[in-house]
Amino acid sequence: MMNTGSKHKLILLTILLVLAIFVLSGAPMVGMNTVPVSAILHPASGRMESDIFWKIRIPRVCISFLAGAGLAVSGMAFQAMFRNPLATPFTLGVASGASLGAAIYVRLGLVFSVLGISGISFSAFAGAILSILLVYGLTRARRGFSTTTMLLAGVAISFFFSSVILFTQYMSDFTHSFRILRWLMGGLEVVGFESVLNMAPFVISGSAIILYMTHELNLMMTGEEIAISRGVSVWKTKRILFFATSLMVGGVVAICGPIGFVGMMVPHICRLLIGADHRYLTPATLLFGGVFLTLCDMLARTLIAPAEIPVGIITALLGGPFFVWLLLGKPSSKRGIL
């Protein structure tokens, strides 16, 4: 027997899935140039339209979907783990750690790859892990752990790493400096499938881990003590979640640079839509995050075409007001918002 609540949630998930398929197949059609069907059907024709479609738009849509899904679900995991609506990979310094890892990779002029995946993704991952361990370690050093202390430590680490990145950039020669700066602005302008192949393993494996941990996330959200007494090994769960979110944030930041707000905003919207039960919330957040960033990117590349607005500007333009609304207008207490 299934109660009406979960039936309702399954319907919502199905709608989100259909929406995601619709956006994924529709978004590559939208752009400055219209792409004729013949160009889509003949990817190797050598015509400019088919190159635009297959080598620019399709990879770009894949990247935005993956990045949106990965950032959103990382934010969701952090918010649940720390029971705080402001806890995200960005506020806790994980994204700046990943950025630093990537910047150092560029600055040192490193070029290596593992299993065909560029070293920059691994550097960003290492930076992400390092920063979360640092933030968590700083907070745990004192007993009487509080999430406020942790957020403050995260902000401090974030500023510190940003300075180190700027210093690295300042000390770099012109080409490196430009590469780092351009990348720090955040963007989804990729060409070809190489970036997709670099990012996908990180986002997919990270999301799979989160999907596997939905019961634990639910319990973490009720508080660590209750989680422990219900049988959750909290410290082990945290380590796994740190690992999974670092994978995703590292993988995304290495390619797209830091894109804020998706990770904070999307989980809140999804909680309003489908409730806080992570068995439904996690797939909803993955789908909605992907759809959201893909749509933002579509706006970014068409609003003032042929010029492009960096997608970070669009997400923050939408995210800023939403955030204020969240702070001021505690919505209906009957919803599952944090």
Binding site: H215, N218, L219, M221, T222, A276, I337
Partner: peptide, 11 residues
Amino acid sequence: SPFTVYEFVMM
């Protein structure tokens, strides 16, 4: 926490 009674007790 933002759960219903049923969800919470089921945990």
